[in-house]
């Protein structure tokens, strides 16, 4: 059990609300529960909200260290949105900031041993990606009307090439939520499995006696290096998700390339 690299991703119900629909048999209908995943989502929201609100409580002209970290995060995301989606994109700043900080803190919480990684589940990342795409499509049509479809017809391309280019553009647009969600999910899942496998080696080999302990040094070093790498991946993936979100939002604001 201790060495099972998959076990960390298991969803466990903390308490259930019963099922909606179904015919009363086990596994039918939609069962709703407060799970370990839900706990860490709520925890993420709670930590972020508490941190940002408490650290800026003083509203200091000269910031404290806590306030400075909040301001740095604010400016980091604000600059990202402004450079990818322009000044008009700043109306989506709270949205992109929420996405970034939710993924970032969720990933970081996942790095703590025995904690659940919410982004290691495809449904979570896919739901977030679909939220982004829904916002992009909805705002694109609200702002530009039918002109939003120009997104699929690049300007300056000869008409005979459009027959080829437009389907490619449509396919690439439709694959966006998939690539967006699978990238984050895959990185977190693979990273945590690898980490667990290598550190599992340490335990298994360590129990084999003196030579085993000597041999365990190598996977231990790998475990240390991988932990550092995973922290980086956790931050980079949150950044990538947020950058791509701002770039897709830019498409909604300026559909013609």
């Amino acid at each position: 059990m201790a060495n099972d690299p998959i076990h960390q991703f298991v969803i466990q119900d903390i308490f259930t609300f019963g099922t909606i629909g179904g015919d009363g048999h086990e596994g039918s209908g939609i069962s709703l529960a407060f799970t370990n995943s839900a706990l860490f989502m709520v925890l993420t929201t709670g930590i972020v909200a508490a941190y940002l609100i408490l650290s800026t409580r003083g509203r200091g002209l000269v910031p404290t260290r806590w306030q400075l970290t909040s301001e740095l995060m604010y400016e980091f995301v604000a600059n990202m949105v402004r450079s990818s989606a322009g000044t008009e994109g700043m109306r989506f700043f709270p949205f992109v900031f929420s996405i970034f900080i939710f993924i970032f803190v969720g990933n970081m919480l996942g790095m703590i041993p025995y904690f659940f990684t919410i982004t290691s589940h495809i449904i979570v990342t896919f739901a977030m990606a679909m939220t982004v795409m829904t916002v992009v499509v909805a705002y694109g049509f609200i702002r530009n009307g039918p002109k939003f479809l120009k997104l699929f017809v690049p300007a300056g391309v000869p008409s005979y090439l459009l027959i080829l280019v437009t389907p490619i553009e449509i396919i690439s647009f439709l694959s966006r939520p998939i690539s967006l969600s699978v990238r984050l999910f895959g990185n977190m899942l693979a990273g945590h499995i690898t980490l667990k496998v290598f550190t599992g080696f340490v335990v298994t080999m360590g129990s084999l006696g003196f030579l085993g302990i000597l041999g365990a040094a190598l996977p231990l070093l790998m475990g240390v290096a991988l932990t550092a790498l995973e922290f980086m991946v956790a931050a980079v993936q949150a950044y990538v998700f947020a950058v791509l979100t701002s770039m897709y939002l830019n498409d909604a604001i300026h559909p013609s390339h």
């Binding site: 969803i11 799970t35 995943s37 989502m41 972020v48 909200a49």
Partner: peptide
């Protein structure tokens, strides 16, 4: 597990 996860993602992300 999907319905529960989507439900709580929606709740916590909306709150956030």
């Amino acid at each position: 597990t999907f319905p529960s996860q989507i439900l709580w993602l929606a709740i916590s992300f909306a709150a956030l």
